[in-house]
Design a protein around this nucleic acid. Structure first.
Lengths: 211, 211
DNA sequence: GATTCCATGATTGTATCCAATATTGAGTTG
DNA sequence: CAACTCAATATTGGATACAATCATGGAATC
């Protein structure tokens, strides 16, 4: 009946490991031994390997046959690629969502912003950040597009955490988010897209500088 | 020593199942029972589940907890998303590759085109199609971008096979490919990008029509 | 002393067995 | 006769045992 108890162990494990990585408990490049991890999470190696594969698909983990899995370490090239893609895809999602936003969408977005103000844990900040953006993109009803964008966000979350940009400049980011939300509420499509693009560029710049 | 014997069973299984799906042996929406498949491939259920998860990540298979996996059936919305994304990302990859192409890249691309002329099996045509595009994008040296584009291509391959567009209009596609390759050899960047975009739009149109 | 070889241990991949969940269908009840 | 119950079955998820591969280190050879 609980919200996440009915999920499969592998999925929960993936979420936990993701949190550990984003919070810096596991550093980039660090090897992730299956037995140690399965012990730590009190599960068997079978669902653990499942979780590792999922994280590999998200780009947070690099795994190669018989060699084991390691925490991915985003380099400059990867960050460039991620933000270039996000700059192309996210405005498309926002544009497609325009005209379909409901009051509930805006309320959900605002709740994420409010929650973020009181949060300091990187993994949760990262999730709230995505929750906000997702609330504005969701009405586009373009699941495949959103799934790809979500992947890109998860992958860049690691880079942002490493650069400490999420933690360092939360107030600036929050301000941009509020402006974006307001533009959406005003049905100012061009303005919202411009704000979103600038917001992504600023985030990219901070990640670059952080390294 | 052989090229793919040293791969893990799960990876080989994923490749085989992908081929079966693209060749129409498994129809969209069809359930993929683990025991039946593991028997058919003469492997255990463990690596099979691994393979199914990988295919799910590629979008060729839809899996939900305890409910089992089915062959994905791309709908109009998914096709729209896939081609919209490809139209934004692939020109970027090609543009980034310009100035870095070697003679070998062009030779590889041409070999793929030649091989495609004699090929009729959908799965192999699909792979050769990607080999060609990849040869032209690879010099960009943007691995993360290329990985995303590859995923999008694999996912749309299923839609293209269903619409029979790959098989139906191979000569038209081949002609566009030759022109694209020539433009790259001539270092005509704007022309090449224009041809690529138009090529993608035509493919999109055919897939829409096919359904 | 550097290098190759091989053995030993560590680690991952696979097979098999067990548990948890979903599905089906006969029987019952209103 | 429709709808619900619940037991029996089918199917997936997880735990454990086994096999294959990789990594480490010392001994032999030059």
């Amino acid at each position: 009946m609980e919200s996440d108890t009915d999920k499969t162990q592998a999925e929960s494990a993936a979420a936990e490991i993701r949190t550990l990585i984003l919070n810096g408990a596991f550093l980039p490049g660090q090897p992730l031994r299956q037995e140690a991890l399965s012990d730590q999470l009190s599960i068997s190696r079978t669902p653990l390997r499942h979780a590792l594969q999922e994280l590999a698909g998200e780009g947070l983990v690099e795994a190669t046959g018989y060699k084991g899995a390691r925490v991915a370490k985003p380099d400059q090239r990867m960050v460039d690629d991620l933000f270039d893609m996000r700059l192309l895809l996210e405005p498309l999602a926002l544009q497609s969502a325009f005209g379909h936003h409901t009051k509930l969408d805006f309320a959900v977005a605002e709740m994420a912003l409010d929650a973020a103000e009181a949060e300091r844990e990187p993994a949760k900040l990262s999730k709230l950040n995505w929750d906000f953006h997702y609330a504005l993109y969701r009405p586009s009803n373009r699941q495949t597009l959103l799934r790809t964008i979500e992947q890109l966000n998860k992958a860049s979350a690691l880079a942002e955490v490493i650069a400490s940009s999420i933690v360092v400049r939360p107030e600036k980011s929050a301000d941009e988010h509020r402006k974006l939300l307001q533009a959406c509420r005003n049905e100012d499509e061009a303005g919202a897209i411009a704000i979103l693009s600038e917001h992504l560029r600023l985030a990219y710049h901070d990640v670059r500088k952080g390294k």
